[in-house]
Every structure is written in C-alpha cells, then in structure tokens.
Write a protein that binds this DNA or RNA. Structure first.
Lengths: 232, 232
DNA sequence: CCCACTTTGTGCGTGGTTTCACAAGCACGT
DNA sequence: ACGTGCTTGTGAAACCACGCACAAAGTGGG
C-alpha cells in the first residue's frame, strides 16, 4: 500500500469553493513564509476569515489531504491548491487601457506572485503608446491580435473607459482569448464559452452605502465597538 | 467567539439582490440618458445581463413599482433604487495609500457619479504627502482621525500594501468608520458591526485561471479522457 | 363595455451552499 | 498494546437563490 493517486479529485468543484481557494492559498503562503509546517482547519479558517467546517468541506473537494489529529501539511496543501487553480503553469496576461487603473494593474507586483505574467500593455491614445510602464513598452491597440499571438496571451484585462470595453472584448474573443477580467462599468456581451469576471469599484461602494444606511436608520443595534453614536 | 446568528436581516432585501441593484441602476441611468421613459423587465434584464424573472423578483423586494402591461418608469425606478441604496444622501470617502492604485481610485470619475465624494487622501510616505492628486492635497496618515472627523468620512478605502492594511483598518474603526473597502490582499479582522468589502485583483485572476485550465483539460469532451485506475 | 394582448408579481420545485454534529482515524504516552 | 486526546471528513438539516410558469392586473382597440 503505497501510491498517492496522482489525480484523486473528480471534476466538479463548486463555484463557491473555487472562489475561496485563492484566499486559502494566500493564508497558507503567509504561514509558509513564517516557517509553519502544519496547520489545523480551525487555525487556517480563522486566518482566511471563514468557518472551519466550510474550509474542511472545501478542501475535501480536492482530496483527502489532511491528517486526523494533526491538520494539514502547509507546503503540500499549497502545492495542491496551486495545481487545482492552474497556477503551476504560466498564464500570459494582456492589459488594454493604460490609464490610471491600467498603470496600477501593470505595476501591481502581487499579480506575478505566481503563475501570471503581464505580457502586453495596449492603449488607443497615441500619447500613451510608446511610453514605458512597469518595464514594458505600451503598444497600440491595433496590434492586439499580434500581441496576443506572439505572447500566447490567454487572459485579457480590460481597463478602458466604458465606451470601448465591448469593442476590446470582441477583439479578444476573436483572437481566442476566452478569459476576460473587466474593470469597465459595463455588462459585456460575449459568446458562450468565454469567461468574463467583472470588478466594479463603484458597485462595491454602493453596496457599502446600502449597509451603512441600514445601520444608520432605525436599526436598534449599534456597532459593537463604538458607543452607538453615528453622525451623517 | 462571536455568537450572533440571529440577525441575517431585519426587514430586508436579500444580499444577492443588493449586489445586483447597482447593476440595474447603471443600466437604468444609461436608458435615462438615451431618453427612454419606460422599460420592460425583459429589456432591462437583458441590459443588466440577468434573467428577467430574477430582475422582477429583485425589484419586488423594493415594492411594486411596475405597471402590468407596460413596464417600469425609468426615472421613478432610478429614484427608488438610489434611495434604497442610500445614494440620495452624500457619503464622504477617505482613501489611504496613494500609490498607483490609490491614485487610480482618486481619479476614477465614476465614483462621484452620485452620492460619493472623495474627501481625503492619506499616505505614510513623506514623498507623497503634500502632492496634489485629483485636485486634493495628500495628507499624512497621522492626521487620519482629524481628516475623518473634519470631513464626516463614513467610508474608508484601503489601498495600502498588505502590511499596513490591518493597522489602517484599526484606526478607521476607532474613529467610527464602519464601512471599509479593502484592496490590500489580506483578510481584515474587525469587530462586529463593521462592514468590510474586499476587492482582490489577483484572486479574480486565479479564478479565471481555474476555469481556463478546466477548459483546456477536457477541451472537446469531458468524459473518459483519462479515467485510469484510482485507489485510495 | 368587453375582449385580446402585454407584462408584472409570485408560488413552487429544484439545486447549490452553509452549518452542525459526530464517527472515523491518527499520534502519542504509558 | 491500548487508551486518551485531538482533528479531519462527511452525513444530514437548514437556508438561500434561481428560474419556470402562470394568475393577476393593467392597456388599448373595436
């Protein structure tokens, strides 16, 4: 009885679990940096800000990687989650729209922590094209197809104004980029099989405002820490 | 620990609905700009990228604001959603961490579209303090308490490096800021009653990578591609 | 006034997600 | 070898979200 099965999991990890795996991964990497060797579901859950039962169930979808009475081996779990998320291979990313946000993304070191390589920066503004941002020369949007093909780009990031986003998305789709991260405040229309995720700063603010208003209204319950006073 | 299960919602709107209201609102405002007076749930749902039954159910949580046989009056619905989200009042926002991302946020006009006013920019780096960004003078982080009080800030945005985020959050909480939007890649620990939302760029990328990998694996079909032996 | 047509609001079945609670499993000390 | 203590993995229950399908309610034409 030896043999660790190389592919214990079956296809079909719940979407909610997938969304949490990166959080676990980051918490684990912090533990790893601190030299921790093993961690219990309780401790890891607390670091990740979730319920421990949820964490165990999430991990159980990947396989049985824990040891009862002990916990999980940090390094091994890091590897398993990385592999599941596809971070053991490299992904090339193109960013379109090198305004304030695009620049921030290009310079955001956290991206490349593992697996992601920013391969191409593109913009439509001839005043921006040619500039050097994060060590890359900004190319013209017209060369998108070329940039995608030459660099093997498989993930496209849209950081353009709302008006251009759909057009950029269309061109990404046409050259075969099937994963798009959209920062523009529009709903993108893409064919089946293309995966779009949206990050919308003002939507997050609006959700915060909703809850803040509810707190301020005749709530009856003040924030635990403060003395119920709340001015608007 | 925290034992406060009895408070999912008081008289309220499901969380999933709240998260979609801003999307509807944006679609409605686009219609308004185009001069459209009324819209059917079908049309609005399509513009917002959701199912029309879901949209109707979402709106039904706000009240009965539609007219059967006709649809919804755009302007009226804009007002109702705005009110529900708390956008009829003004929210003052402070941004801490004026690096690339903080700068992008400060300049992001979309914020102020309605209801949100960026009242204060703060940073710890003396090379940044004093600079003018988006028409505001960047203040020193030490003046956070003062800035919050003087401007009536009720929403705090954290765009600092990971290492400083928890500290900034603590200070926000201490001066009574109970709504925090966190861009730093850490899980913030805050007392009950404080609302934290997190936007994490690299997590989004990792989720995309997961799906991209799954597409690549079982590309044509999914079934018995590699169903070998499996022992545990 | 009545009828045909349109669109909302919602009851209900279905499926996914969270949480509890506990048996099963492993390590370690005696 | 065996019991003790701890932690995982997972049934089962509760909860929530989604979408179908249809009755209710309004509009407009004849």
């Amino acid at each position: 009885m030896i043999s660790r099965p190389p592919r214990p999991r079956e296809r079909g990890i719940p979407e909610a679990t997938v969304a949490r795996l990166p959080v676990y991964l980051r918490a684990l990497q912090a533990l790893e940096d601190r030299g921790t060797l093993t961690v219990s579901s309780e401790a890891l859950a607390s670091a990740a800000g979730v319920n421990s039962a949820k964490l165990r169930k999430d991990l159980s979808h990947l396989g049985s990687y824990g040891t009862r009475g002990v916990g999980y081996e940090v390094e091994y779990l890091v590897y398993q989650i990385s592999r599941e998320l596809g971070l053991t291979q490299d992904w090339s990313v193109a960013i379109v729209g090198i305004g304030n946000l695009g620049r921030a993304l290009a310079n955001y070191g956290g991206f490349g922590t593992r697996g992601f390589r920013i391969a191409s920066l593109l913009d439509a503004d001839s005043g921006v094209v040619g500039q050097s941002v994060a060590g890359l020369r900004v190319g013209h949007i017209d060369s998108l197809e070329e940039a995608v093909r030459d660099n093997g780009v498989s993930i496209g990031v849209i950081a353009t104004p709302a008006g251009s986003a759909q057009h950029v998305a269309n061109r990404f789709v046409e050259v075969g980029v099937a994963s798009i991260l959209n920062f523009a405040p529009v709903v993108l229309d893409v064919p089946d099989g293309v995966d779009v995720r949206k990050v919308d700063l003002s939507i997050e603010l609006q959700i915060l405002a909703f809850h803040a208003q509810r707190r301020a209204d005749g709530d009856g319950r003040a924030p635990a820490d403060r003395t119920g006073l709340e001015l608007t």
